[in-house]
């Protein structure tokens, strides 16, 4: 019994923690704070506006990432007005960045994002809505297309009282749907500055309090995001071909 516990503890200590949505202006400062908080990887997200800005962001990331102990993940956030715009923007960015995040909230966007294999993470589908922004069909589709749902801690910082209780309730319902249909979900900070950043265990406490199994809750900040990054890098490096065949 004791030995089993010891191994479990060791596994936990070896975990790689990732925060894949940190849309800060000062990337260097955010990286420093993330290292202090024991993250193995951080994704300072860039909101896609035009090609020139994206190239500038990629250049900055390349310059920073050389001699750091932390994994810098190139993340691009897509904010679209309609599904067509979303697809258009994804087409322009997919080959250039490691992770594509789509900002949810609009139900049409939520549905379109869960139907698109190129999308990695659908962020806060419940954003500024009076419902969860997800139904059983979207959940099923997300599971089929391997789209992860991302819950953002920043939404809770921005709200209080009645509205915060609604947000928490929507997140709880979304998590229930995700668990029922086998959709993967993660928790991200969504910090706009370093004071919005939170440690991995603090992020994992959100699903834990909402009734998710403790080990699964820890996976939302470690195994799941790490897997997304690893698989995407393999795909971008040409190691995984269409149909999921991997060249070893």
């Amino acid at each position: 019994m004791f030995i089993r516990f010891k191994y479990k503890l060791k596994d936990r200590m070896d975990m790689n923690f990732y925060d894949l949505y940190v849309p800060v202006d000062d990337i260097e400062e955010a990286v420093e704070t993330a290292m202090k908080m024991n993250f193995s990887g951080i994704g300072p997200a860039h909101r896609y506006d035009n090609k020139k800005m994206l190239n500038k962001y990629l250049e900055e990331m390349d310059n920073l990432g050389g001699d750091l102990d932390i994994d810098l993940v190139r993340c691009c956030e897509i904010k679209a007005d309609n599904p067509r715009d979303m697809k258009n923007k994804i087409g322009k960015t997919r080959q250039k960045v490691d992770v594509i995040l789509v900002k949810g909230g609009n139900f049409d966007i939520n549905t379109a994002a869960t139907r698109d294999r190129r999308v990695d993470i659908l962020l806060h589908p419940e954003h500024r809505r009076k419902d969860t922004g997800m139904d059983h069909k979207t959940a099923k589709m997300a599971a089929e297309k391997n789209v992860t749902i991302g819950f953002v801690m920043h939404d809770l910082h921005q709200t209080y009282g009645k509205v915060r209780s609604h947000v928490i309730n929507h997140i709880r319902k979304s998590i229930e749907l995700c668990e029922k249909y086998g959709v993967q979900f993660i928790v991200v900070s969504g910090a706009r500055d370093i004071y919005g950043m939170r440690g991995p265990r603090e992020l994992a406490s959100l699903p834990k309090v909402l009734g998710v199994d403790p080990s699964k809750a820890m996976d939302t900040v470690s195994t799941v995001p790490h897997k997304i990054v690893k698989n995407n890098r393999k795909k971008l490096g040409g190691r995984i071909k269409k149909g999921g065949v991997e060249r070893l």
Partner: peptide, 23 residues
């Protein structure tokens, strides 16, 4: 423990100063 951690994570201001609490 996780309830307290979440409550700590939701604090972004103490008095007049902007803060982040980490366990």
């Amino acid at each position: 423990v996780s309830e307290v951690r979440l409550a700590m994570a939701l604090i972004n201001r103490i008095g007049e100063s902007e803060v982040s609490i980490r366990s």
